[in-house]
């Protein structure tokens, strides 16, 4: 797949595997699903603006840091400033020294989920994706086998891929929370007690 550059591979292996953590963290900062989503996407886009990405020792921590900084920036620019959010932004500093989550275990869970998602695809989509990706038939062979044109096959594949990417991305956001600094507990306590 010559259209994949080293940065794409790096992103997939070092960053995107931890997307559930990134989303969970963004959600805790923003407490808003859409905004959290946009924060993560903005952070990912920023990674693709880097020229020295290969030198980042801990891409996961680095990504959390960007998410945090972006959240702070947005908070400062916001027309209506929510005071309690300022508190959570301070408390939810990403922990740079945290041990890396087990990439292999995450990838394995991911694979199991993927098997489940495949079964949820519409039948023709599923057939196209399975023949191309699992049976490893060439696009032309798949089209012939399904008795459709290559351009129709492209539509099935594209739709299938989009659905899989969407489910895959949406899932797992509730599995593990990002470890945060000690002060969070304190902060929660304060909020409960109405000490905003």
């Amino acid at each position: 797949m010559s259209w994949l550059r080293p940065i794409d591979q790096w992103f997939a292996d070092q960053v995107f595997v931890y997307r559930a953590k990134h989303r969970a963290y963004a959600l805790r900062l923003t407490r808003d699903g859409d905004e959290a989503e946009d924060l993560v996407q903005e952070a990912y886009a920023r990674l693709f603006r880097l020229s020295n990405w290969a030198e980042i020792a801990n891409p996961n921590a680095f990504t959390l840091r960007i998410i945090h900084n972006e959240a702070v920036e947005r908070f400062r620019k916001a027309q209506v400033v929510q005071l309690d959010r300022s508190l959570s932004l301070q408390a939810l500093e990403p922990v740079d020294e945290q041990p890396l989550p087990d990439r292999v275990a995450i990838a394995r869970q991911d694979l199991n989920r993927m098997a489940g998602y495949l079964e949820r695809l519409p039948p023709r989509c599923r057939e196209a994706v399975c023949l191309r990706k699992i049976d490893n038939l060439s696009p032309r062979e798949v089209a012939a086998k399904m008795d459709i044109s290559v351009s129709t096959l492209e539509k099935h594949l594209s739709k299938g891929l989009r659905l899989l990417a969407k489910w895959r991305y949406a899932d797992g956001s509730d599995t593990e929370e990002t470890r945060v600094t000690e002060s969070v507990g304190e902060c929660r306590k304060m909020r409960k007690q109405g000490m905003k």
């Binding site: 797949m1 694979l111 895959r168």
Partner: peptide, 30 residues
């Protein structure tokens, strides 16, 4: 950069589907 980023995310998913060719279904963390 968003195009590049979203494309890389799609590519990661695309590759992961292919990994099912030889891989697992049981969930058992290491």
């Amino acid at each position: 950069p968003r195009h590049a980023s979203v494309f890389a995310q799609m590519a990661a998913t695309w590759k992961r589907i292919g990994d099912l060719r030889w891989a697992s279904t049981d969930d058992d963390a290491v």
